[in-house]
Nucleic acid binder design. Sequence first.
DNA 1: GTCGAGATTGACT
DNA 2: GTCAATCTCGACT
Length: 192
Amino acid sequence: MQPLPETFYDQPTLELARSLLGCVLVNETEEGNTSGYIVETEAYLGATDRAAHSFQNRRTKRTEIMFGKAGMVYTYTMHTHCLVNVVSGEIGQPEAVLIRAVEPKQGLHLMEKRRPVTKIENLTSGPGKLTKAMGISTADYGRSFLEPPLYIAEGFTPDSITQGKRIGIHNSGEAKDYPYRFWITGNKFVSK
DNA sequence: GTCGAGATTGACT
DNA sequence: GTCAATCTCGACT
């Protein structure tokens, strides 16, 4: 499986968020390899998006990576969980795409070992769930999706894509109603 | 050094 | 619907 080329990330963040649907997220670890089709994403446009960590180009130690090159890995700890983003936009533009859900492809047994569930559709149907199932952590912060062990490869073209409001952002004024969320219509691994 | 907030999840009323 | 778990970082003393 080949990582997608650098040119794939050379497109506007909202288009990248849409393009990532159907692509394969791969993580190679000592325990084994896991991969899954990306079925849900959210765009964060730092300069104007109040819900983004980098709102109004706020540059901190944590958001630093968002100002860098598209295709970098931005991981972030939220309460007890870890979230994973793909950095987007030109250098100097703090934009990123949050990977909210994947559909398991390879390493199903390993994912279930890391995150025991009764229903398979609960395994990776949320941003904190998929990182645990695939073994992604804050140690991956600053890596590149262009090369192993953590990378994104070509998958399939979704039949139908739905666009809507983002989830789980509170007290963000108008930003909470921005239609920056994309998911594959009808896929059961999309979060609620 | 201490305090508060948060791009979530799972359990419970 | 509500709420706590538990960690990192930024702001302040």
